[in-house]
Design a protein around this nucleic acid. Sequence first.
DNA 1: GGCTTAAGCGGAACGCTCTTCCGGAACTAT
DNA 2: ATAGTTCCGGAAGAGCGTTCCGCTTAAGCC
Lengths: 214, 214
Amino acid sequence: MTENTSSSAAGPPGSAAPGAPGRAPRQLRADAQRNIGSLLEAAKAVFGTSGVDAPAKEIADLAGVGVGTLYRHFPQRSDLVKAVLQHGIDACADAAPALAAAHEPGAALANWLHRYTEFLATKRGLATALHSGDPAFDALPGYFYQRLEPALGSLLDAAAATGEIRADISASDLLRAVALLCTPVSDEGIAYSQRMVTLLIDGLRYPAELQRSS
Amino acid sequence: MTENTSSSAAGPPGSAAPGAPGRAPRQLRADAQRNIGSLLEAAKAVFGTSGVDAPAKEIADLAGVGVGTLYRHFPQRSDLVKAVLQHGIDACADAAPALAAAHEPGAALANWLHRYTEFLATKRGLATALHSGDPAFDALPGYFYQRLEPALGSLLDAAAATGEIRADISASDLLRAVALLCTPVSDEGIAYSQRMVTLLIDGLRYPAELQRSS
DNA sequence: GGCTTAAGCGGAACGCTCTTCCGGAACTAT
DNA sequence: ATAGTTCCGGAAGAGCGTTCCGCTTAAGCC
C-alpha cells in the first residue's frame, strides 16, 4: 500500500478544471466540478484550523457532501493537500523571474526565500504535514520541489556568479531547509521563521564575505 | 486534557528508578521496575524502526508485557518519548561546559551545535514527532529546551562577548531551528542536517565578519 | 514459613476514525 | 421525454488507541 505517488504517465487533453486530481478522459459533470470546488475550499479551511489530520468527515460536512464524495475525488489525503497547495506553489515559482529582473541577484534570492517562507507560514498546518513522517505525504515534498527547484536554482546560480553567496548549496537543500524552519511550533510562527531564514541567507553569504575581506 | 506535564507538588523520597515518569510516594515493586526497563528498551527500538506513531501493541509485545502495563507506566505517549530521550538530552547539556573549557567560544559553540545535531539525527523518528503538530507532544520541546537552554545560552554569550557572532539570536531560537533541521526527510539525513546547521552557524558569524572588515 | 494486603498485570471491551461499497438520485445526450 | 451513465450519500467493515476489571504475584507481617 501507499502506492499512491506520481500518478500515471497520462497526458490528457488538459481542459479539465484546474486542481482536480483525477485525469478524467471526459469532461466532469457539472455537480462534480462544483463539489470539487467546495471540497477544496473546505479542506483549506479545515486544514488551517484542525491540521491535516482532521477527520475526513469534518471536511466533507463543511463542504456539504458525503465522505464518499471526498474519497472519490481525492482517494489519497495527499491528493487533497496537493490540490490545496498547488496554486500557491505555482505563484511562488512564477515570482522568481520577476524578482530576478527587478533586483540584484543577492537581493532577489533573499526576497524570494522570504516570499517562500511567507507562503509556507500562511499554510502552517499544511507544510508541517509534508514532513510529518507520514508515508502518505512522502511524495509531496518531492512533487513540489520539482516545481520550485528551477525557480530557486536560477536565483542561486545568478547570486553565486556574482560572488555574493557560496556555490556549494543546492536549491533542493535550501527548499527543504526553509520548509522545515517553517514548521509551526508556538504561535509567533512567521516571525520566527523569517528570522531563521534570514540567518540561513546570511550563512550563504558568510564565506563570500570572508573571501572579499581577506 | 494534555494536562500531563509537571506532576503534582509532591517532593518524594527520591530514590525511585531514574526515567520513571510517575512520582510514586513509595518504592516501585521489583517487577514494575523491570517492566519499565523493558518498555523503555522496546520503545527505543520500535521508535527507531517504526516511528513514534507505532502501534502501542508493538511496543508492549516487544517488551513482553500487556498494553495495560504500558499505559499504566506511560499514560501519555509523550511520557515514553520523554523517558527515551532524557538520557541523551542530559548528556548534551552536560557537554557544554566541557566544550567551553576546551575550545575558543566560537569553536565551542559550533562544536556543541554539531553534537546536538548528531544526537537529534540518531533519534530520527523521535525528534520528528516533537514538531509533528500532534498536541500530545506539544509540551515536550519546551521541557527539553528548558534543560538545554542554559547550556547553549552560556556558549552563545561567550561567543557573542568576543564578537565572533551576533548577539541577537536567542538560545531557544537556535535549539528549535536545529531540531527542525534535523527532521529526517530522505535518507542522507545526518549529512544534510549537519550541512544546514553549518550554514546557520555561518549566519551567526556573518554580521560579525562584516563589522570586522568594515 | 504461612498469611494478609494491595500493587501490578494482562487482555477483553469500548469507541472513534478511516476506508470501501452499493442502491438511488441527478445530470446529459438523444 | 427517455435512456444511459455519472455521481452522490451514508451505512457497513476493519483497525487502532485507550480504558477497565478480575486475577496474579510481590512485599510486609505475625
